[in-house]
Design a protein around this nucleic acid. Sequence first.
DNA 1: CTAGAATGTTTACGGTGCTCACATTAGCCC
DNA 2: GGGCTAATGTGAGCACCGTAAACATTCTAG
Lengths: 203, 203
Amino acid sequence: MRPSKATYHHGDLRAACVSAAMELLEESGESALSLRAVARRAGVSPAAPYRHYADREALVSAVAALGYRELAERLVAAHPSPSTPEQLTSVAVAYVQFALERPALFRIMFGEPCDRDNDERIAATAAVTLYLREIVGRAFPEADTEAMATATWALVHGLAFLHLDGKLAAPTPSAVAERVTAAIQVLLRTMGPPGLEPGTYRL
Amino acid sequence: MRPSKATYHHGDLRAACVSAAMELLEESGESALSLRAVARRAGVSPAAPYRHYADREALVSAVAALGYRELAERLVAAHPSPSTPEQLTSVAVAYVQFALERPALFRIMFGEPCDRDNDERIAATAAVTLYLREIVGRAFPEADTEAMATATWALVHGLAFLHLDGKLAAPTPSAVAERVTAAIQVLLRTMGPPGLEPGTYRL
DNA sequence: CTAGAATGTTTACGGTGCTCACATTAGCCC
DNA sequence: GGGCTAATGTGAGCACCGTAAACATTCTAG
C-alpha cells in the first residue's frame, strides 16, 4: 500500500510524525524539534499533528518511547542473554555508546522533565528496568539483585551523562569503553559472589 | 545603596538578570525561563538583557554557573573537609539531595547541551571536579584518585538523574539517602583500603 | 562642560505552540 | 450504491518567544 501523495488524508500521520521528529532530532538536535517543523516534514499543515498528539510534550514522549525501544534493541544486540559479569559489562558499554551516538535522543529520554502520565513512555522504561534487573539477577543470582541493578544502572547512566556534557574527557570511543568497563568491573567485583578472582571478570 | 526605582539605568542589571532567572526557574521550572520573563521581572524592557548577555544561552550558562557554586557550597556544608569514607558518603548524599530539591536548576546545569565556551561555566565545573578529586584523594590516599573520583561522581550523578526522572521509586528523602549511602559504600569498599588485589583499581 | 561610551527603549520580524471554525474524506448502516 | 457520522486535515489567528536595529537617556572621562 504505497502512500498516495495527493490525498487529503495522510494515511498514517501519527507514525509519520514520530519518524519526522526522530529525523529532525538526529539531524539538527533538540532545538530543531518543533511541532511545526515536524508537520512541514510530514507534508501537512501546522495544526494537523494535534489530531494525534495533545501537545508537543506528547509527541516528544512518543519519540522518547521509541528511543527506549531502540536502546533495548541495542542492549540485546550487545549480548542477547548476558549471564556473566563480562557479558554484563559489554551491555553497559553499549548503553554509554548509545548515549554518545545519539545524544539528542538520549537527552529527550532522560534529561527532560518527563510526562509521567504517558502510558507508552511508562511501559517502555519499565521494560528497560525489568531487562536490567533480569540480567543482573542472572549474572549474580546470590546478590541483592535490586541494589545491584540500581547501582549498576546509576553508574552507567552517570558515566553516560558526564561524557555527554564533556565533564569527562574521553577522546575516542574505545577510551570511553575502557573507562566504562573498568568502572563497572570494580563495582561488580564487590557486589558479586565472594571468591572470584579479578581475572575472572576481564573482558 | 538601595536601588532607586525610577532611574533610567538599572544599576546592576547583569546580576539582576541571573537573580530573576533563578527565581523563575525555581518557581515555575525551566519552561518559564525566558529572556522576556527575566526582563519583566527585572523591570526592564525585553531587549535590555542583550546589553549583558549575548543570547538566552549565555544567560542560562550564567545561571548554571551560579548553580555550580551553590552545589559546591552545599557539598562543603555536608562536610567541610571529608577524610573518611563515611564523610565522603555524606557529601554524596548531599549531591543527590541538591538535585532533588532543585530539579530545574540541576537540569540546567547537567541535562542540557551546554555552552562549552562559556568561561564562567567552565571554571565553575572545574572547581567541582577538583573538589571531588581532592576529597576522594584525601579519603583514599593510596587508591587511584582519578579513577575513584570518576566512578564516584558517575554513581552519584546517575542516582541523582534516575531519581529525578522517577526511574527509581523513592518515597521519602531519607529513603533516597539510604539508597545513595548503600551504593556509595559498596563502591568505596572495593577501591578503598589497601590489601585488596593490587593493580585492579585502575580505571 | 562636553563628547563619547554604556546602558535602556521602541519597534519590528520571523518563528513557535496552540485553538477554533471549517473543509474533506473514510467507514458504516441502510 | 447512498447517505450520515466521526475522523482527519486546513486556515486563520492569538499570544508568546528570541533577536536585531535605530533611537533615547545617562554616566563618565577629559
